[in-house]
Simulated scan of single mutants.
Amino acid sequence: MDVTFAIKIFSALFAIINPIAGVPIFLSLTAGMAPGEQRRTAILVTITVAIGSVVSALAGTAILEFFGLTVNNFRLAGGLVVLLLALSLLNGEDSPAHAGSAAEQKTYKTASNVAFYPMSIPLLLGPGSIATLVVYAHEGRSTGQEMAFWIGLAAFLIVLAAMMITAPFIGRVVSPTVMSVTKRLMGMILAAIGVEMMVTSLTALFPGWTH
């Protein structure tokens, strides 16, 4: 098993889903809930993200083939989405792809089950993270590193669960400045991931372009 590939999967998911930035959003959506209800919501968020991640990883390629698309086509589009998300983070803004449009955000206040919508989808499991899962799951299968992919994904889900369950504590000890710095750091990592995905796709689609 390639430990480096597993670390790459973990790092990519941590950067794009960014559970640290998700903590204050989770707290605002669950404000007024009893501690037990907050923990239940955190567990439901983790389960929803885990199911969505597994489905994306296992069925992503088959869905693309159904629509007559290749992984390289999706990798190029996904790299562009990730890059746009990274630019939003670097500017200290929330991308509509993850935060939702203005009209969608108005419904957040009346959502009865915030664990699924909007916390899990689209705030955590959005277009960028789904594209990343599909692309890296295919890469893991094609290079014989499928086990490393699942280990990296499992490690991230464990960290996500821990951060969601301990969100009230994290919200008390982590300052807004740390959140802002983390957002921009994740933006830099995401920018590199997005560029890598686009370059890999272009190299596969146009083999002669590097020469």
Rank of each mutant, 00 (worst) to 15 (best):
A15T: 09
H138G: 04
G78F: 00
L27V: 06
A167M: 06
M163T: 04
I43S: 02
F66W: 11
A50N: 12
G92I: 02
V23L: 10
N18T: 07
A148V: 02
G208L: 14
M119E: 08
W150T: 02
A137C: 08
T61M: 11
V134G: 07
T46E: 12
D2P: 09
G126P: 01
P127S: 12
T4G: 15
L85M: 10
V23M: 09
F116L: 14
A137G: 07
Q145M: 12
N91K: 15
P207F: 05
G92F: 08
L123P: 00
G32W: 06
A115F: 04
R40D: 10
T182S: 15
I20D: 11
F5D: 05
E93R: 15
W150R: 03
P35K: 01
T143S: 14
I63D: 08
S101G: 14
R39C: 08
D94H: 10
F149M: 00
Q38W: 05
I9S: 02
G92V: 03
T143N: 11
V199C: 03
V55P: 01
I151L: 13
Q38I: 09
A62V: 08
W209V: 09
F26T: 04
V135T: 07
S28N: 15
R75E: 06
F156E: 05
D94R: 10
F67W: 06
V45I: 09
T61K: 14
S28Y: 08
I17T: 14
F74Q: 00
P96Q: 01
P118N: 09
W150N: 00
I51Q: 05
V114N: 01
V195G: 11
I47E: 07
Y108Q: 04
G152V: 00
M188H: 11
P127C: 08
L205H: 03
F5K: 06
P168C: 06
M147L: 14
T143G: 08
L90I: 11
L44G: 00
A34I: 04
L190V: 06
E37L: 10
V45S: 06
V159A: 14
P19V: 03
T132S: 15
A34Y: 02
P96M: 03
I130W: 11
G78T: 01
L160G: 05
F149G: 00
D2G: 01
A31Q: 15
Q38Y: 04
F169W: 12
S53E: 13
S101L: 13
T132R: 03
K183S: 14
V174L: 14
K183H: 15
P35L: 01
F149H: 04
S180N: 14
V23Q: 06
K183Y: 14
L83W: 08
S201I: 02
V23E: 07
M188R: 09
E196Q: 09
A111P: 00
Q145F: 11
T48N: 11
G78C: 04
L124Q: 12
I25A: 12
